[in-house]
Nucleic acid binder design. Structure first.
Lengths: 194, 194
DNA sequence: CATCCTAACTAACGGTCGTTAGGCAAATAT
DNA sequence: ATATTTGCCTAACGACCGTTAGTTAGGATG
């Protein structure tokens, strides 16, 4: 059939918005901007979407659900901490690299959500953080990980994974799976030679 | 003399702006917002500052210069790579934790700078990144570091350090020096027990 | 052919934006 | 005591904001 390239207008709008929200930020992107990119008038967007914020909501929650779905699936596998850790990092990086624009918006523009969406979003993020926190805890109990401060360790890992958008390009020589592998290596063993 | 608490209006404006730019982003912060926080009218700000962007410029370049000054000083010390690395990370984290609001603005709002400031800023950042890149290179040459991909390693380190604002509070139990120490430990040896 | 639906349009709404001009009262300097 | 400077004010500017209303052209459907 070979379709899948031609997207309907709603999808086009969301695609363009993701791109602009990433590039210029949500607040600095106007509806006239998005419309201009598609060669139509700002008012015409409202035939397809309800509001500017609705677009942001969709981006944020779509990605949040991907992260949570992935963590739920991994949790069910009952793996040893080290294996679970590896797979979790790999899954996270896969989602980030496959959704670069959305990821940046997800990471930095969620604060422009209004209530109750803002609170919902924070809750989902907390749930996902806890998934990782439990992996670290389990690893420590298994005497496999040595963790001096849990919060610090957790956020070193998250920051490194979430910072990928700063330097990753799909056309570069490092592909998602290799990034995951190398990053796990750094987290587990560091960069010191001995 | 015990002054230093009462600041002149210009300083107050910059202080308030840093805070709001961090909290809501540059684009979503209005001059009327800043003024309101200080109990005056928006137009009155212009007795003390030239423009909204001037404030952003000051925040961004002030911090960029701190980072570069610190790296220049360390470079002059001619330390072995491992020691230089430790001191560089410690210095970076000290600057971040001592300038939390500015740091967040520096990290995320620089893109709203107009030319030629935008290009200047990117250049300074590049210079600073190269300082770290050279530390990694030197460590590899000294056979102290094993680095599979330089860019990945570099950005894991930067992301972890720059992500500190996500979780650090000055009143928490972890103080900047301990954070630096533990983070260096994670970078060098990882979290694996063996 | 007549009808309905879709996706766009123009025009406009009330509001907010950054910024300028000009004035005025209090503080400071002469 | 007088002159100057400072720090704020009000009023307003043109531009842009997100969004609504009403319309229209063209294609699909009966």
């Amino acid at each position: 059939m070979a379709t899948a390239i031609i997207k309907n207008r709603k999808q086009q709008i969301h695609h363009t918005a993701k791109n602009l929200f990433r590039e210029r930020g949500y607040a600095a992107t106007s509806m006239r901007h998005i419309a201009g990119e598609l060669g139509i008038e700002a008012a015409s967007l409202y035939s397809h979407i309800k509001s500017k914020e609705e677009i942001l909501q969709l981006i944020c929650f779509e990605l949040a659900e991907q992260f949570l779905k992935s963590s739920d699936e991994l949790q069910r596998k009952k793996l040893p901490a080290k294996d679970l850790f590896k797979q979790a990092v790999t899954a996270h990086i896969r989602i980030i690299t496959q959704n670069m624009d959305s990821s940046v918006v997800f990471l930095h523009e969620w604060r422009h959500l209004s209530e109750p969406f803002l609170s919902d979003f924070k809750l989902m993020r907390k749930r996902y953080e806890n998934f990782y926190k439990n992996i670290l805890k389990a690893g420590a109990e298994e005497k496999k990980f040595q963790i001096r401060d849990e919060k610090l360790t957790l956020f070193v890992i998250f920051s490194a994974m979430n910072g990928i958008y700063e330097w990753f390009t799909p056309k570069g020589k490092l592909q998602p799976e290799e990034i995951a592998e190398q990053m796990v290596e750094v987290f587990l063993n560091g960069i010191l030679k001995y």
